[in-house]
């Protein structure tokens, strides 16, 4: 084991209380960030579920030849934005209306509803501009009488998504900055607690890199441990919310690893900043 690693691990043993305090502080900072991330993730998931319901319905004129409708359907299915396109006959439309409207099912007579091409869009193409573009192309077919897609609803959804993204980015950045400041201060305490040791190291001819290395390792270790602890706390919070409030989504493995890695990087950056500042000052 190199001296830097040994010194970093010794620091945990020599001042267990300060180390535990650092790890806990990092964990709570990241926990706050993690909770916010969880809220952002669930808002995004909810919006995505709503967006999944974005659907375009193109009504086909009466007496349109079946071949023409089938050819058009093939064209529409080839649109890059389109996930599915299905031809609904008047009979199928009637069945669906009766199924969806339940007690009013007897108000519909056969032949009252037109045939339609029902289209769902791929993720990433459910914004108002893409929806409008697909609708415009559908209107170019002579036998398409009308195209409906809940224009207002799609635009409202987009607005909500924009606000959520903006607020999410702003709040996320704020939480991240607060976490970095708190973690930086915590590590600065650890650096100051060992100021005497640093001074002695420099007097006996240690290079700045040599002085820095154990602190960087220590910061990275504390950050990783804090990240792990924050993940456990966030998971517990998510489980409690799931049990008593509503079922919430939790981070997938990739995001969980990114969260822990963020702890490592913040610990490392906080250490680098604090030690660098200290080395400049002495």
């Amino acid at each position: 084991m190199t001296l830097a690693w040994r010194e970093a691990l010794l620091a945990f043993r020599r001042s267990p209380m300060l180390s535990a305090l650092s790890v806990t502080t990092i964990a709570f900072s990241l926990f706050a960030f993690g909770l916010f991330g969880l809220v952002a993730l669930n808002i995004r998931e909810a919006l995505t579920r709503l967006e999944d319901r974005v659907e375009i319905r193109a009504f086909v004129a009466d007496r349109t030849p079946a071949e023409a409708a089938a050819t058009a359907l093939g064209d529409v299915q080839a649109f890059p934005e389109v996930a599915t396109a299905v031809l609904i006959t008047p009979t199928q439309a009637l069945e669906r209306a009766r199924r969806e409207l339940g007690e009013f099912s007897d108000v519909f007579d056969a032949g009252i509803l037109p045939a339609s091409i029902d289209i769902t869009l791929k993720p990433g193409f459910r914004d108002p501009a893409s929806v409008r573009s697909v609708a415009a192309r559908l209107r170019t077919y002579d036998f398409i009488e009308d195209v409906r897609y809940g224009e207002e609803w799609v635009e409202k959804l987009q607005e909500i998504r924009n606000v959520a993204t903006l607020a999410g980015t702003g709040l996320g950045l704020t939480f991240a900055i607060v976490a970095v400041i708190i973690i930086g201060s915590t590590i600065r305490m650890a650096v100051l607690a060992r100021a005497r040791e640093i001074a002695i190291m420099r007097v006996v001819g240690a290079t700045d890199g040599f002085v820095r290395a154990p602190f960087l390792i220590e910061g990275a270790l504390k950050g990783t441990l804090g990240g792990l602890l924050a993940l456990v706390m966030t998971w517990t919070a998510s489980e409690m919310i799931g049990r008593y409030v509503f079922a919430a989504e939790f981070f997938d493995v990739r995001l969980a690893v990114v969260g822990i890695f963020a702890g490592t990087v913040i610990g490392l950056a906080g250490s680098a900043f604090s030690v660098g500042r200290h080395l400049k000052a002495v």
Partner: peptide, 13 residues
């Protein structure tokens, strides 16, 4: 700056 460590290794303080 990086020569300082080199210098201090030539000295005992």
């Amino acid at each position: 700056h990086r020569d300082i460590a080199k210098l201090r290794r030539k000295l005992g303080i």
